[in-house]
Amino acid sequence: MAVKLSERAAQEVQRFRTEHNFGEEMVLRIGVAGGGCSGFNYTLNFDDSYDEKADSKYECHGVELVVDKKSALYLDGTTVDWYESLEKQGFTFENPNAVKTCGCGSSFQA
């Protein structure tokens, strides 16, 4: 399996890319970093670098995403979605590898 974007999340990524005039060389990088209230934080940013040896590259609904191989161990099978309500909006992570998540949804324990 791999990391996937929902169609709605891909639309938001494309909207953001257009608003900030990012070229096609910019890929969406998804990863994990130590920290947060549960042990790991999700990371999401644009990057213009890709290393074939250190990264895996995927395409989802027209968006190229890159995941470093270390993060891929924790993110395998994860779907990134977009949530929007009156109170908040943002990306959500449905991670089958998370054994515990925090209330904010941005950190997890594997």
Rank of each mutant, 00 (worst) to 15 (best):
18 T>I: 08
22 F>G: 02
23 G>R: 05
24 E>V: 11
25 E>F: 02
27 V>A: 05
29 R>P: 01
29 R>W: 04
32 V>H: 02
33 A>I: 12
33 A>Q: 14
34 G>N: 06
35 G>A: 02
35 G>T: 02
35 G>K: 04
36 G>A: 06
36 G>K: 01
40 F>K: 10
40 F>E: 04
41 N>T: 06
48 D>V: 03
49 S>G: 00
49 S>A: 03
50 Y>L: 09
51 D>A: 05
52 E>I: 11
53 K>T: 12
53 K>C: 03
54 A>T: 10
54 A>I: 09
56 S>P: 02
56 S>L: 12
56 S>M: 11
58 Y>H: 13
59 E>A: 08
60 C>Q: 12
61 H>R: 09
61 H>I: 08
61 H>M: 08
61 H>K: 09
61 H>W: 13
62 G>R: 11
68 D>G: 07
69 K>E: 14
70 K>A: 13
70 K>F: 10
71 S>R: 07
74 Y>H: 11
75 L>D: 03
75 L>V: 09
76 D>V: 11
77 G>I: 06
81 D>S: 15
83 Y>G: 00
84 E>T: 04
84 E>P: 01
87 E>I: 11
88 K>G: 09
89 Q>M: 12
91 F>C: 05
93 F>L: 03
93 F>M: 04
95 N>I: 02
95 N>D: 01
96 P>Q: 10
96 P>Y: 09
96 P>L: 09
96 P>H: 10
99 V>L: 08
99 V>M: 05
100 K>E: 15
100 K>T: 10
101 T>D: 01
